[in-house]
Design a protein around this nucleic acid. Structure first.
Length: 287
DNA sequence: ATGCCTGAAGGGTTCAGA
Protein backbone atom coordinates (compact mmCIF):
# COMPACT_ATOMS: atom_id res chain seq x y z
CA UNK A 1 0.00 0.00 0.00
CA UNK A 2 1.34 3.41 -0.97
CA UNK A 3 0.51 6.32 1.35
CA UNK A 4 1.41 9.88 0.46
CA UNK A 5 1.03 13.26 2.13
CA UNK A 6 1.18 16.62 0.40
CA UNK A 7 0.55 20.19 1.45
CA UNK A 8 -0.79 21.40 -1.88
CA UNK A 9 -1.20 25.11 -0.94
CA UNK A 10 -4.64 25.42 -2.58
CA UNK A 11 -6.09 22.36 -4.24
CA UNK A 12 -7.77 24.61 -6.78
CA UNK A 13 -4.50 26.16 -7.94
CA UNK A 14 -2.73 22.81 -7.76
CA UNK A 15 -5.17 20.79 -9.82
CA UNK A 16 -2.95 20.83 -12.95
CA UNK A 17 -0.18 19.30 -10.82
CA UNK A 18 -2.22 17.06 -8.54
CA UNK A 19 -4.08 15.02 -11.14
CA UNK A 20 -1.02 14.07 -13.25
CA UNK A 21 0.84 13.33 -10.03
CA UNK A 22 -1.89 10.89 -8.95
CA UNK A 23 -1.65 9.18 -12.33
CA UNK A 24 2.13 8.96 -12.17
CA UNK A 25 2.72 7.98 -8.52
CA UNK A 26 -0.50 6.02 -8.11
CA UNK A 27 -0.80 6.39 -4.34
CA UNK A 28 -3.48 4.28 -2.66
CA UNK A 29 -4.04 6.83 0.08
CA UNK A 30 -3.28 10.55 -0.14
CA UNK A 31 -3.37 12.99 2.77
CA UNK A 32 -3.73 16.57 1.63
CA UNK A 33 -3.24 19.81 3.55
CA UNK A 34 -4.00 23.45 2.83
CA UNK A 35 -6.74 22.61 0.39
CA UNK A 36 -8.17 26.10 1.10
CA UNK A 37 -11.56 25.06 -0.16
CA UNK A 38 -14.97 24.33 1.35
CA UNK A 39 -16.13 20.72 1.05
CA UNK A 40 -18.93 21.35 -1.42
CA UNK A 41 -16.60 23.33 -3.69
CA UNK A 42 -13.98 20.60 -3.50
CA UNK A 43 -16.50 17.97 -4.51
CA UNK A 44 -17.66 20.18 -7.34
CA UNK A 45 -14.12 20.86 -8.50
CA UNK A 46 -12.67 17.40 -8.58
CA UNK A 47 -15.22 14.88 -7.38
CA UNK A 48 -15.60 13.26 -10.78
CA UNK A 49 -11.86 13.40 -11.55
CA UNK A 50 -11.17 11.47 -8.36
CA UNK A 51 -14.08 9.11 -8.75
CA UNK A 52 -12.97 7.98 -12.18
CA UNK A 53 -9.51 7.30 -10.73
CA UNK A 54 -11.12 5.16 -8.06
CA UNK A 55 -10.65 7.48 -5.10
CA UNK A 56 -13.14 8.08 -2.34
CA UNK A 57 -12.75 11.43 -0.58
CA UNK A 58 -12.96 12.54 3.03
CA UNK A 59 -12.68 16.32 2.90
CA UNK A 60 -12.67 18.72 5.83
CA UNK A 61 -12.16 22.22 4.52
CA UNK A 62 -13.15 25.83 4.78
CA UNK A 63 -12.96 28.83 2.50
CA UNK A 64 -9.59 30.53 2.05
CA UNK A 65 -7.52 28.92 4.79
CA UNK A 66 -6.46 25.53 6.13
CA UNK A 67 -8.34 22.48 4.87
CA UNK A 68 -7.37 18.79 4.90
CA UNK A 69 -8.52 15.73 3.04
CA UNK A 70 -7.89 12.02 2.60
CA UNK A 71 -8.21 10.35 -0.78
CA UNK A 72 -8.31 6.57 -0.78
CA UNK A 73 -8.84 3.83 -3.31
CA UNK A 74 -8.48 1.07 -0.70
CA UNK A 75 -11.45 1.94 1.46
CA UNK A 76 -12.41 4.95 3.52
CA UNK A 77 -14.31 4.16 6.68
CA UNK A 78 -15.15 5.75 10.02
CA UNK A 79 -14.36 9.29 8.88
CA UNK A 80 -13.88 11.81 11.69
CA UNK A 81 -13.44 15.50 10.88
CA UNK A 82 -11.39 17.63 13.25
CA UNK A 83 -9.79 16.80 16.58
CA UNK A 84 -12.68 15.90 18.88
CA UNK A 85 -12.44 18.15 21.91
CA UNK A 86 -9.47 19.94 20.41
CA UNK A 87 -8.73 23.65 20.73
CA UNK A 88 -9.98 26.38 18.40
CA UNK A 89 -8.89 29.88 17.55
CA UNK A 90 -11.45 30.57 18.79
CA UNK A 91 -13.51 28.19 16.67
CA UNK A 92 -12.12 24.86 15.54
CA UNK A 93 -10.31 25.13 12.23
CA UNK A 94 -10.19 22.55 9.46
CA UNK A 95 -6.87 21.00 10.40
CA UNK A 96 -7.48 17.28 10.87
CA UNK A 97 -9.41 14.46 9.29
CA UNK A 98 -9.16 10.76 10.00
CA UNK A 99 -10.33 7.62 8.24
CA UNK A 100 -9.60 3.91 8.19
CA UNK A 101 -8.08 2.73 4.91
CA UNK A 102 -7.31 -0.96 4.38
CA UNK A 103 -7.05 -1.57 8.11
CA UNK A 104 -4.86 1.44 8.86
CA UNK A 105 -6.14 4.43 10.80
CA UNK A 106 -4.96 7.41 8.74
CA UNK A 107 -4.85 11.01 9.97
CA UNK A 108 -4.23 13.99 7.72
CA UNK A 109 -3.11 16.93 9.85
CA UNK A 110 -2.21 20.55 9.30
CA UNK A 111 -0.68 21.78 12.55
CA UNK A 112 -1.10 25.51 13.26
CA UNK A 113 1.81 27.68 12.19
CA UNK A 114 2.34 29.45 15.50
CA UNK A 115 3.52 32.68 13.87
CA UNK A 116 5.59 34.05 16.76
CA UNK A 117 6.93 32.33 19.88
CA UNK A 118 5.03 33.59 22.87
CA UNK A 119 2.03 34.71 20.83
CA UNK A 120 -1.49 33.41 21.29
CA UNK A 121 -1.05 31.63 17.95
CA UNK A 122 1.96 29.84 19.39
CA UNK A 123 0.05 28.78 22.50
CA UNK A 124 -2.70 27.50 20.22
CA UNK A 125 -0.16 25.45 18.26
CA UNK A 126 1.11 23.79 21.43
CA UNK A 127 -2.42 23.14 22.69
CA UNK A 128 -3.35 21.64 19.34
CA UNK A 129 -0.38 19.29 19.46
CA UNK A 130 -1.28 18.25 23.01
CA UNK A 131 -4.78 17.44 21.81
CA UNK A 132 -3.36 15.36 18.96
CA UNK A 133 -1.19 13.54 21.48
CA UNK A 134 -4.29 12.70 23.52
CA UNK A 135 -6.07 11.40 20.45
CA UNK A 136 -3.13 9.18 19.53
CA UNK A 137 -3.07 7.67 23.00
CA UNK A 138 -6.43 6.08 22.13
CA UNK A 139 -5.63 5.30 18.49
CA UNK A 140 -5.71 1.80 16.99
CA UNK A 141 -2.52 -0.25 16.89
CA UNK A 142 -2.11 0.41 13.16
CA UNK A 143 -2.20 4.19 12.87
CA UNK A 144 -0.32 6.69 10.74
CA UNK A 145 -0.28 10.46 11.15
CA UNK A 146 0.55 12.27 7.93
CA UNK A 147 0.86 15.94 7.31
CA UNK A 148 2.39 19.34 7.72
CA UNK A 149 3.44 19.52 11.36
CA UNK A 150 5.05 22.96 11.00
CA UNK A 151 7.97 21.78 13.15
CA UNK A 152 11.45 20.81 12.03
CA UNK A 153 12.19 17.87 14.35
CA UNK A 154 15.91 18.67 14.70
CA UNK A 155 18.45 21.19 13.40
CA UNK A 156 19.27 18.59 10.76
CA UNK A 157 15.87 19.35 9.26
CA UNK A 158 16.63 23.02 8.64
CA UNK A 159 18.96 24.40 5.94
CA UNK A 160 20.50 26.86 8.39
CA UNK A 161 19.65 26.48 12.07
CA UNK A 162 21.17 29.89 12.81
CA UNK A 163 18.65 31.53 10.50
CA UNK A 164 15.78 30.22 12.60
CA UNK A 165 16.93 30.93 16.14
CA UNK A 166 14.04 32.32 18.14
CA UNK A 167 11.51 31.56 15.42
CA UNK A 168 8.70 29.08 15.27
CA UNK A 169 9.21 25.56 13.89
CA UNK A 170 12.44 25.01 15.83
CA UNK A 171 11.74 26.07 19.42
CA UNK A 172 12.23 23.54 22.23
CA UNK A 173 8.54 23.52 23.28
CA UNK A 174 7.44 22.73 19.73
CA UNK A 175 10.03 20.00 19.40
CA UNK A 176 9.02 18.62 22.78
CA UNK A 177 5.38 18.50 21.66
CA UNK A 178 6.45 16.58 18.58
CA UNK A 179 8.70 14.40 20.72
CA UNK A 180 5.69 13.47 22.83
CA UNK A 181 4.14 11.90 19.74
CA UNK A 182 7.32 9.89 19.20
CA UNK A 183 7.29 8.87 22.86
CA UNK A 184 3.73 7.68 22.31
CA UNK A 185 5.18 5.11 19.91
CA UNK A 186 5.10 6.94 16.58
CA UNK A 187 8.07 6.70 14.24
CA UNK A 188 9.32 9.37 11.84
CA UNK A 189 9.67 6.90 9.01
CA UNK A 190 11.46 9.16 6.52
CA UNK A 191 14.19 10.08 9.00
CA UNK A 192 14.42 6.45 10.08
CA UNK A 193 15.05 5.51 6.47
CA UNK A 194 17.46 8.35 5.71
CA UNK A 195 19.19 8.95 9.04
CA UNK A 196 22.01 11.15 7.77
CA UNK A 197 20.68 12.61 4.53
CA UNK A 198 19.73 16.18 3.70
CA UNK A 199 15.97 15.76 3.33
CA UNK A 200 13.59 18.69 3.02
CA UNK A 201 9.89 18.87 2.19
CA UNK A 202 9.34 22.64 2.09
CA UNK A 203 11.17 25.41 0.28
CA UNK A 204 10.10 29.05 0.30
CA UNK A 205 8.91 30.26 -3.07
CA UNK A 206 11.16 33.28 -2.91
CA UNK A 207 14.77 33.90 -3.77
CA UNK A 208 15.41 30.59 -5.51
CA UNK A 209 15.30 28.66 -2.26
CA UNK A 210 14.33 25.40 -3.92
CA UNK A 211 16.98 25.76 -6.60
CA UNK A 212 19.59 26.14 -3.85
CA UNK A 213 17.98 23.39 -1.75
CA UNK A 214 17.47 25.76 1.16
CA UNK A 215 14.47 24.18 2.85
CA UNK A 216 13.04 22.54 5.90
CA UNK A 217 11.61 19.12 6.68
CA UNK A 218 8.27 19.84 8.27
CA UNK A 219 5.98 17.35 6.49
CA UNK A 220 6.14 14.04 8.27
CA UNK A 221 4.76 10.53 8.23
CA UNK A 222 4.53 9.32 11.83
CA UNK A 223 3.70 5.64 11.96
CA UNK A 224 2.79 3.46 14.90
CA UNK A 225 5.18 0.55 15.35
CA UNK A 226 2.78 -1.86 13.67
CA UNK A 227 2.83 0.32 10.55
CA UNK A 228 6.49 1.34 10.76
CA UNK A 229 7.48 -2.31 10.68
CA UNK A 230 5.82 -2.57 7.26
CA UNK A 231 7.69 0.35 5.66
CA UNK A 232 9.52 -0.62 2.47
CA UNK A 233 10.25 2.83 1.08
CA UNK A 234 9.96 6.37 2.37
CA UNK A 235 11.02 9.38 0.34
CA UNK A 236 10.29 12.95 -0.68
CA UNK A 237 9.00 13.45 -4.20
CA UNK A 238 11.10 16.46 -5.18
CA UNK A 239 9.94 16.21 -8.79
CA UNK A 240 6.58 17.56 -7.70
CA UNK A 241 8.27 20.75 -6.41
CA UNK A 242 9.86 21.45 -9.80
CA UNK A 243 8.44 22.99 -12.96
CA UNK A 244 5.48 25.25 -13.47
CA UNK A 245 3.04 26.09 -10.71
CA UNK A 246 4.28 23.88 -7.87
CA UNK A 247 3.22 23.93 -4.23
CA UNK A 248 5.92 25.19 -1.88
CA UNK A 249 5.81 21.72 -0.27
CA UNK A 250 6.79 18.41 -1.87
CA UNK A 251 4.86 15.17 -1.28
CA UNK A 252 6.18 12.48 1.05
CA UNK A 253 5.59 8.94 -0.19
CA UNK A 254 5.69 5.78 1.92
CA UNK A 255 5.24 2.23 0.68
CA UNK A 256 4.03 -0.46 3.06
CA UNK A 257 4.18 -4.21 2.82
CA UNK A 258 0.91 -6.04 3.04
CA UNK A 259 -0.40 -6.39 6.56
CA UNK A 260 0.43 -9.68 8.21
CA UNK A 261 -2.45 -12.09 7.66
CA UNK A 262 -3.84 -13.12 11.03
CA UNK A 263 -5.35 -16.27 9.51
CA UNK A 264 -1.97 -17.88 8.98
CA UNK A 265 -0.90 -17.34 12.55
CA UNK A 266 1.78 -15.14 14.02
CA UNK A 267 4.68 -14.28 11.77
CA UNK A 268 7.84 -15.61 13.35
CA UNK A 269 11.20 -14.54 11.96
CA UNK A 270 13.66 -17.34 11.15
CA UNK A 271 15.99 -18.01 14.07
CA UNK A 272 18.99 -16.96 11.98
CA UNK A 273 17.60 -13.48 11.35
CA UNK A 274 19.34 -10.98 13.65
CA UNK A 275 17.30 -8.20 15.14
CA UNK A 276 18.17 -5.18 13.02
CA UNK A 277 17.47 -1.63 14.10
CA UNK A 278 14.52 -0.06 12.38
CA UNK A 279 15.51 1.52 9.12
CA UNK A 280 18.56 -0.66 8.73
CA UNK A 281 16.78 -3.75 7.49
CA UNK A 282 16.88 -2.80 3.84
CA UNK A 283 18.83 -0.53 1.59
CA UNK A 284 17.27 2.87 1.00
CA UNK A 285 15.15 2.99 -2.10
CA UNK A 286 15.22 6.04 -4.31
CA UNK A 287 12.26 6.80 -6.54
C1' DA B 1 13.40 44.21 2.52
C1' DT B 2 12.52 38.77 7.81
C1' DG B 3 7.82 39.48 2.80
C1' DC B 4 12.70 38.64 -2.27
C1' DC B 5 6.61 34.49 -3.86
C1' DT B 6 2.00 32.70 -3.90
C1' DG B 7 -2.89 32.40 -2.77
C1' DA B 8 -7.44 34.22 -1.12
C1' DA B 9 -10.78 37.69 -0.24
C1' DG B 10 -12.50 41.52 -1.59
C1' DG B 11 -11.99 45.33 -3.70
C1' DG B 12 -8.13 48.64 -6.62
C1' DT B 13 -4.80 46.43 -1.16
C1' DT B 14 -4.26 43.45 2.83
C1' DC B 15 -3.32 39.29 5.34
C1' DA B 16 -1.21 34.81 5.84
C1' DG B 17 2.29 31.48 5.16
C1' DA B 18 7.18 29.29 7.73
Amino acid sequence: MRIATWNVNSIKQRLPRLLPWLDERKPDVVCLQETKLADDKLAELLGSELEHRGYAVAAHGEAAWNGVAILSRVGLDDVVAGLPGGPGFPHQEARAVAATCAGVRVLSVYVPNGREPGSEHYAYKLAWLASLRELLARAPEATVVCGDVNIAPTDQDVFDPDAYVGQTHVTPPERAALGALVEAGFHDVVRDRWPHERVFTYWDYRAGMFHQDLGMRIDLVLASTAVADRVRAAWVDRQARKGKGPSDHAPVIVDLDEAPDGDIGPVVPPPSAPAAPRGAKKLPQAP
